[in-house]
Amino acid sequence: MNLQALSGQLLVGLINGSFYALLSLGLAIIFGLLNVVNFAHGALYMMGAFAAWMMATYLGIGYWWALLLAPAVVGVIGVVIERLLLRRLYGLDNLYGLLLTFGLTLIAEGLFHHAYGNSGNSYPVPEFLQGGVRLGFVYMPIYRGWVVGVSIFVCTLSWYVIEQTKLGAYLRAGTENPKLLQAFGVNVPLMFTITYGFGVALAAFAGVMAAPVYQVTPLMGSSLVIVVFAVVVIGGMGSIAGSIVTGLGLGLVEGLTKYLYPQASSVVVFVVMAIVLLIRPAGLFGRER
């Protein structure tokens, strides 16, 4: 093969990296602020994609509205989960949250499987973004370019809000010392609810973005969530910038592997994870606690 093929693979890697970044961002926010390992993230991503498909099929709502509405609907489901279930586990070992969200994943996947089977459904690429451009070295579908652009925009925006604004400062303070922050008159429980809802909405947003690219199936999130967890671990649990940079970076590493030795592409992420953990146990961008 040649340089042309390599650049093609790297571009594809960047596109996949955008999905990783978008998903791991939500996970990192939820873990960083709530200290919950949200294993349901893949299922919520799947629900976002299904929400978009259902809106198109049953209600005739198109892609653009779905991009807004599907995350809102799934976000509300997230809020309900947080209020009814997750809330009771704060302060306990991380494992409880993980088990709860894992259970929720199985239930959600089971329900969708029961209703729609496993082959899933096709979601069309929105008309405005159909087709592609020849970049010289590779044919780039316009929709994939859109995915990269939107993902980088959303990630930067989220990072900015959390790391650079007053609201973000409250959120971070809430994780360091919730009691103290509450004493200052900030409604910390509400803040937690909103944070979880936002993280979930991000997953659903990624789901809507993915719907035109991948087949919308009940299991679409289950293979992705493992990789995304690896991304979060490599980036440093809870580090927002870390997860964004790592997400994109690992997409590229995966692209490179697919060029050099495709068979290893599904394990390369975990090899990187093992190496990073040996050298920096808190992850690339993580702080030792």
């Binding site: 093929a5 693979q9 594809v12 596109i15 590779v138 293979s223 495709p262 592409s265 599904s266």
Partner: peptide, 21 residues
């Protein structure tokens, strides 16, 4: 030929690019 891990692969673009080139 391009061999992809299965099950568990959802993105086939890199394999398809190889097919294309």
């Amino acid at each position: 030929a391009a061999r992809h891990p299965s099950p568990g692969t959802t993105d086939f673009s890199s394999y398809l690019l190889q097919a294309q080139s």
